[in-house]
Amino acid sequence: MSLRWCVHELGFRAAVRRVRELGVSAVELCGMSGPDVDWWRDEGAGSGLTAVSVHAPCPDGSDASRQYPGDWFLDDDPQRRAAAVSYAVDSIRFARQAGIRHVVYHLGSYQRRELFTALVDAVDAGGPQCRAARQARGAYLQGVEQAATAVRDRLRSTVERLLTEAGEDVVVCLENRYRHDQAPSPAGVVALAEEFRSPALGYWHDTGHEAAQRHLGVWDNGAADAALQLLAGMHLHDCGGVDDHRPPGEGYYDFSPILARRAPSMPLVLELASSASAERVLAGIAFLDRLARTGRR
């Protein structure tokens, strides 16, 4: 389970205790400060939790404004880009020291949120195939492609730096994003894999992000199938419309096909919103257990 569920409300150490109280034994680390790194190293083993992945930036060196360095990689400000890379590299170094193999990354934003919002509004008003939605979708996809082309070299240099740092003992896991104007997309992961051909590069599949993009008609099945050949782990959460990070079973996502792709020992991480109560979290875990045992919801 991801500490995302409660780390920003409780702080890292209290979040570790809260997740352990649920009976969870494996966790994805996030939301750490510098002192938390020392605490995890010295006392983490006694928490009863095993860390299976790290969600970068972790440790998080950003300031109290809670701005997210994971979206600075493509920023026009070179200082912010450099800070993002620094935090990203620190995440790999922490993972290596802690013996955690998988580090999950977002790679930035193309800053086309207004086109995303227009598409959501059109789909909500008339459905994904109404005329307004088709027009909004076309404008969104065109705008994203133009923006992505303009910053492609920034994306490439970021990934090259991460793979160099990862070496042979850490996997740089690139996660599909919630919005199509955020990087990387499955197609972007495939392009980077073909360019670098590195065993240190993997794909981290997020089910709720897939579902939200399917709802809007911007999910690319062919690119996703190609990216899934690189599958290293998953974030599991449900989605209704574009409302994601719900406990499994509360939305419309069909988990069976993606779970069938799981290799033995591959990390599966439940990534839920802080609004989910402990009871809802446990119901989501029970839903996935039942699905794994019986193949039925």
Rank of each mutant, 00 (worst) to 15 (best):
R93P: 07
G127E: 01
G31M: 04
R66H: 09
R81F: 03
V85Q: 15
R66K: 10
L107F: 08
Y68G: 15
T117F: 02
G11A: 06
D75C: 12
D90N: 13
A15L: 04
R96V: 04
Y68Q: 15
V52W: 01
Q97V: 04
Y105Q: 05
Y110Q: 10
Q79Y: 01
E9S: 14
R112E: 08
S25G: 11
D42Q: 14
V54C: 07
R81T: 11
S25C: 04
M32P: 07
V89L: 15
E28Y: 04
R20E: 11
F73R: 11
A26E: 14
V24T: 11
D38A: 15
V85T: 14
Q129I: 01
L29D: 11
W40N: 13
A125E: 14
D76P: 09
S109I: 01
R13Q: 14
F73P: 14
V37G: 06
F73N: 14
R101S: 10
D76W: 00
V27D: 05
A88T: 06
R93D: 14
A122Y: 03
G46A: 11
R80L: 15
S62M: 01
A147I: 07
D42F: 00
A26C: 13
A26L: 03
S53K: 08
A83Q: 13
D60A: 07
S109T: 15
D121W: 00
G44C: 04
Q146I: 08
S47W: 00
P69M: 02
V103R: 07
Q67K: 12
R96K: 10
E43C: 13
R41E: 12
L119T: 07
R131P: 05
Y68E: 15
D38P: 02
A82Q: 12
G11C: 06
G108H: 05
R113I: 04
D75I: 00
A51Y: 03
R131L: 05
S65V: 00
A88F: 02
V89P: 04
V103Q: 08
V16K: 06
S62W: 10
F94D: 13
L115F: 02
P128T: 10
C58Q: 05
D63Y: 03
S25A: 13
A125P: 09
L22E: 11
R66G: 07
A56H: 05
R131V: 04
P128I: 05
G127M: 01
E145Y: 02
R13T: 09
G143R: 03
P59S: 08
G34L: 05
G31F: 01
R20H: 15
F12T: 14
R137M: 02
A64C: 03
W72S: 12
G34C: 00
A125N: 12
H8F: 09
R66D: 09
C30L: 13
D38M: 06
Q146M: 06
A133M: 02
I92G: 11
E9N: 12
V19Y: 01
R113Q: 14
W39H: 09
W40Q: 11
L141H: 02
R96H: 05
G126W: 00
P57G: 07
L74M: 07
S91C: 06
C6A: 13
V85S: 12
L29K: 11
G99L: 04
R131F: 00
P57I: 00
